[in-house]
Amino acid sequence: MGDTEDGVKPKRTVFVTVGTTSFDALVRAVDTQEVKDELLKREYTHLIIQMGRGSYTPTKSGGEDGSLAVDFFTFSSSIADHLRSASLVISHAGSGSIFETLRLCRPLIVVVNEDLMDNHQSELAEELAERKHLYCARPQTLNQTIASMNLESLLPYHPGDASPVAKLINTFLGFPDD
C-alpha cells in the first residue's frame, strides 16, 4: 500500500521545527526509537529537524533498510520551503510557526515546551487543538499522539482578518469610513 510501481516508497517527510530558540526536549523526543517507529508505521520516510540553538544533536541516518532517514540543521532562511514540502509538521508552540504551517494547510502537531517559565504558549495550541486545527502534545506524549492521530479529522484553518481592528481605529480617530 502506498508503494509506487517500481516498488520505491513515495517520499513523505516529517519536518520538526523549534523556532529561533532551543527546545532540546522536543529534539530528544523525535530522536527516540518509539517516535521513529510510530512515524514509520504511518509510512513517513524522512525526518528533517530544525534544532535551533539546542545542544542535543540527533543521530543522522541515511534511511537504509527501510528505516527512517534523519537529517538536521540549526537555522535556515527557507523554513517556508521545508514546511511546504512536508507531509507532517511537528512544531514548537510559537504563534509564528503555528500560523505559517496552518496557512500552508499542513497537518500539524504542536509540542508544548514545559520548561518555559511563563507557559502561556500552551493556551494557543490547546485552543486550536480544541477547534480541531491541529494536535497538541507534550514531549513525552508525542509517540502516543502520532499513534492515535487521525489527520483526516483536522479542519482547515481560515486565516483571520485585521480589518475589524482597522475599522475601529479609524472610527476612533475620526477618519471617515470608506
Binding site: 500560523f99 493556551e123 494557543l124 490547546e126 476612533f172
Partner: peptide, 9 residues
C-alpha cells in the same frame, strides 16, 4: 491602541 497577542487566549 493595544491589540493583545493571538497567543493570549
Amino acid at each position: 491602541f493595544y491589540v493583545e497577542s493571538i497567543a493570549r487566549v
